[in-house]
């Protein structure tokens, strides 16, 4: 079963809708340990990414590249460079194809993790979005089922709750962040969920 550029465009539309629905919840979560704007950045970024690609005529890689540019220019912030780099890597991983087997979406998950890590220099265990992306990417690379990939991401997000933050804004709050999930890992689980739903579809 193939995954086409039109499927990829639909995926970004669903990601934009998901972030719009979750915006205030993500902001509230970020207010506890950050500056309260994570939901806004994710909503604006995914909307800009989706808008940028709808009328685009090109390959899967072209769509990812345009989505990266749209996301970055709309938000800046931390999530802008991180997801923009992730999407650029995803585009490179899938290449200039018009369609690919659905199973190749696991390459996308691995590449997004690689891009985020390249840009943000985070390691697992620092209470960041990498704590969700990394286990999901490891599961995807090992050939796990879509359900198991998502479960790995969720476990990773849950594991951020008892962590101290050592990177990013929350790192200045010391022990006060303990008990709260990292908002970036929560939105990462939502994105991974949408991708794995597509894989299983």
């Amino acid at each position: 079963m193939d995954f086409s550029t039109s499927d990829l465009k639909h995926l970004f539309v669903r990601l934009a809708a998901r972030m719009s629905t979750e915006r205030d919840a993500l902001c509230a979560l970020d207010g506890v340990i950050g500056d309260g704007d994570h939901g806004i950045a994710m909503e604006q970024g995914m909307k800009a990414a989706a808008d940028q690609i709808q009328s685009l005529d090109g390959s899967l890689q072209d769509v990812f590249n345009a989505a990266a540019k749209g996301f970055l220019n709309a938000v800046g912030a931390s999530s802008g460079p991180l997801y923009a780099t992730g999407f650029l890597r995803a585009g490179k991983a899938v290449g200039p194809r018009l369609a690919m087997p659905k199973d190749d979406l696991r390459l996308v998950i691995v590449a997004i993790r690689d891009g985020i890590q390249h840009r943000g220099k985070a390691e697992p265990g620092q209470k960041t979005m990498i704590d969700a992306w990394h286990p999901a990417a490891e599961a995807a690379a090992a050939g796990a089922t879509p359900t198991s990939i998502l479960a790995a991401a969720k476990d990773g997000m849950e594991a951020t709750k008892p962590m101290l933050a050592t990177l990013g804004r929350a790192s200045r709050l010391g022990e006060r962040v303990i008990g709260h999930a990292d908002p970036g890992s929560v939105s990462a689980v939502m994105i991974i969920e949408e991708i794995t739903l597509e894989m299983a579809h």
């Binding site: 915006r23 902001c27 500056d35 309260g36 806004i40």
Partner: peptide
Amino acid sequence: LPQTRQPSFDLPAGEMEIGMGIHGEP
């Protein structure tokens, strides 16, 4: 924030945050 128009964090009456940042970080 103008987009949410909700307090970025909860600060009960009679209390203050010492050493906060300029983004409403606690």
